[in-house]
């Protein structure tokens, strides 16, 4: 008599093969399977359909489904690369891969640029940055006068917008974050190093016979 029951697993939509996902990312097969435990928890929090919708994403971030947040929406849209309105497991793993401590710095710089280039023009424009600053003030208890916001924008653009055309291009962004590396701190999640320890139950659901590391 064994300790575990053998069960026929229900196919999960969008559940890509962990071995293939591991080959495309910095994650090992075990880490991909541990990420699936996290994915299952988030994707079943409102509708148990094997996909993360925006409401579930907000709920996981804020523990509050009613809270709309510009930045969480932006991150969701970048994870949802196929623009389906939902994040499948492959999207989830490939996007989190950019946040891995070992991911290339260039990938982090590029993802961060897309995050702030909200309208996708290929430039971070002053109006976009102002909109994000105002959104930050709304979500935090920080209060800044409009004049102060303009001073912050002037200072930021005088440093980052080298050709002074009122917008930050990819090359200017690259130089700016290289001089201000703290701006990339949000792009690294130390949790991803210990994902198998955080979600040890992956071993009971593993699809691979021998877990490669």
């Amino acid at each position: 008599m064994g300790c575990f029951h053998s069960t026929v697993r229900k196919p999960v939509p969008g559940h890509e093969n962990p071995t293939i996902l591991a080959s495309q990312t910095a994650f090992s097969v075990s880490e991909v399977e541990a990420l699936f435990e996290l994915f299952k928890s988030i994707s079943s929090s409102v509708i148990d359909d094997g996909l993360i919708n925006k409401e579930e994403f907000q709920l996981a971030l804020f523990k509050n489904r009613k809270k709309e947040n510009l930045f969480a929406n932006r991150i969701f849209d970048l994870f949802d690369v196929k623009q389906k309105g939902v994040i499948d497991f492959g999207d989830f793993v490939r996007a989190l891969n950019v946040f891995h401590p070992n991911a290339p710095q260039e990938d982090k710089i590029s993802f961060c640029f897309k995050l702030y280039d909200m309208d996708g023009t290929g430039f971070i424009e002053r109006q976009e940055v102002k909109q994000m600053l105002i959104a930050l003030l709304c979500e935090s208890e920080l209060k800044l006068a409009d004049d102060t916001i303009e001073v912050i924008l002037d200072k930021t653009f005088s440093e980052a917008d080298v050709d002074q055309d009122g917008k930050i291009d990819k090359s200017e962004w690259h130089n700016f974050v290289t001089k201000n590396p703290s701006l990339l701190k949000i792009m690294t999640l130390p949790y991803l190093r210990d994902i198998t320890t955080t979600f040890p139950s992956f071993v009971f659901n593993s699809e691979v016979e021998e877990i490669a590391t």
């Binding site: 996290l38 988030i42 971030l61 930045f71 946040f99 702030y116 930050l136 979500e139 930021t156």
Partner: peptide, 24 residues
């Protein structure tokens, strides 16, 4: 805050702190 650049301020947003996803 006025001494910080705009992106330093923006990166303080809770919506950009994906570490919260792991707090299940």
């Amino acid at each position: 805050p006025a001494a910080m650049n705009a992106f330093e301020l923006i990166s303080m947003s809770k919506g950009l702190n994906l570490g919260n996803l792991f707090d299940t």
